[in-house]
Amino acid sequence: MTDTRQVDELDLRIRNRIYSSFVGSGDAPTPGGIAAELGMPEQEVDAAFRRLHDAHALVLWPGSTELRMLNPFSIAETPHRVRAGGRSWFANCAWDALGIPAALDADAQIASECADCAEPVELEVRDGRLVRGAELLWHVLVPARRWWDDIGFT
């Protein structure tokens, strides 16, 4: 959930550029790169990255402006790999793994694992329907109002 009180139009413009850059190239953009693309001072973009993090519109690594999550995408490698449109992505969690085909509006194959036994599990989305993996369960440990207390654990 994003806190809508903390972002303005410029922040949203920067956020949208971050997402389009990542989805276009597969590489996590930096404040310097986005600043160059938008013709803005890096310091201003740096501050926008931090505001977007505070507003839960993206997730940075602690104490830096390095991107960790562009939900539902993960910048870091995770056990949840999504193949869609001839490309491969990492998702932050089981929910996000199914969020990537939704965000891309694409068919996808998802390779993940059972949290208990670490055996591989596979899901497939085709034409907007879950056609493989329907027998799996999804478990959420953390109550919704505490999801952002520690988004990495959630």
Binding site: S20, N71, W95, A102, A103, L130, A134, W138, H139, L141
Partner: peptide, 24 residues
């Protein structure tokens, strides 16, 4: 851990579709 909440993958898929489809 104390149990949280469990759904089927089918229900999760529908949630993901509604939650994330506008993200890009």
């Amino acid at each position: 851990w104390q149990p949280g909440a469990t759904t089927t993958a089918v229900q999760l898929h529908e949630l993901a579709r509604r939650w994330w489809s506008s993200r890009l």
